[in-house]
Simulated scan of single mutants.
Amino acid sequence: MRSPRVAGERPWQSAHALLLLPITLIAVITVVDVQAPTDVHLGPTLVIAPAITPSFAGPLTTAAIGALATGAQILIGATHGGIATTNHVVQIITLFVLSVLCVLYSALRKRRQAQLAQVRTVAEAAQHVLMWPLPEHIGPLRIASLYLAAEDEAQIGGDLYAATRGEGAVRVLIGDVRGKGLPAIGEAALLLSAFRESAHRNIPLAELAGTLDQSVSRYAADLEPPEEAGERFATALVVEIPDRDPVTRMTSCGHPPPLLLSPGHVVTVPSLHPSPPLGVHAGAEHTLDVFSFEPGDTLLLYTDGVVEARDARGRFYPLADRVARWTEDSPEALMHHLRRDLLAHAGGRLDDDAALIALHRTPVDRRRHHGRGATVGTLRHGPDTQAGQRTG
Rank of each mutant, 00 (worst) to 15 (best):
W132V: 14
K110N: 13
A144N: 04
A150E: 13
R109A: 12
I143M: 10
S145G: 10
D152E: 13
M131A: 13
R109Y: 00
V122H: 09
K110L: 15
V119A: 15
I156S: 10
P135E: 06
Q113Y: 01
V122R: 05
A144E: 08
D159M: 10
L134R: 02
Q155D: 03
H137M: 08
A114T: 01
D152R: 06
A149K: 02
Q113R: 02
P140D: 11
A107G: 09
L134W: 00
E151C: 11
Q127V: 01
A149H: 02
R112S: 13
H128I: 14
H137L: 14
H137G: 10
A126M: 15
A117G: 08
P135F: 04
R142K: 13
H128D: 12
L146N: 05
R111S: 02
A149I: 02
R111W: 05
E151P: 00
A123R: 15
P133G: 11
V129T: 14
G158P: 05
S145H: 12
A107H: 10
Q118W: 12
L116Y: 00
S145C: 04
D159Y: 03
A123E: 13
H128W: 09
A154Q: 05
A117K: 04
Y147D: 09
R120Y: 02
V122G: 07
A107W: 08
D152H: 03
V129E: 15
Q155H: 14
A149R: 00
R109Q: 06
L160D: 09
L148A: 07
A150G: 09
H128M: 15
G139P: 10
A123Q: 15
A107T: 03
A125K: 04
A150T: 13
H137E: 13
P133N: 05
R142E: 15
S145Y: 05
L130Y: 03
R109H: 12
R111F: 02
L148R: 06
V119M: 08
L148V: 09
A126C: 12
D159C: 12
T121Q: 11
V119P: 02
Q113P: 01
T121H: 05
A123K: 06
Q118K: 11
R109P: 00
A107Y: 07
T121Y: 08
E136Y: 03
E124M: 13
A149G: 07
R142V: 08
R142D: 14
Q155R: 10
I156V: 15
P135T: 08
L116R: 04
L134N: 06
Q127W: 10
A114V: 01
A126G: 13
L146W: 06
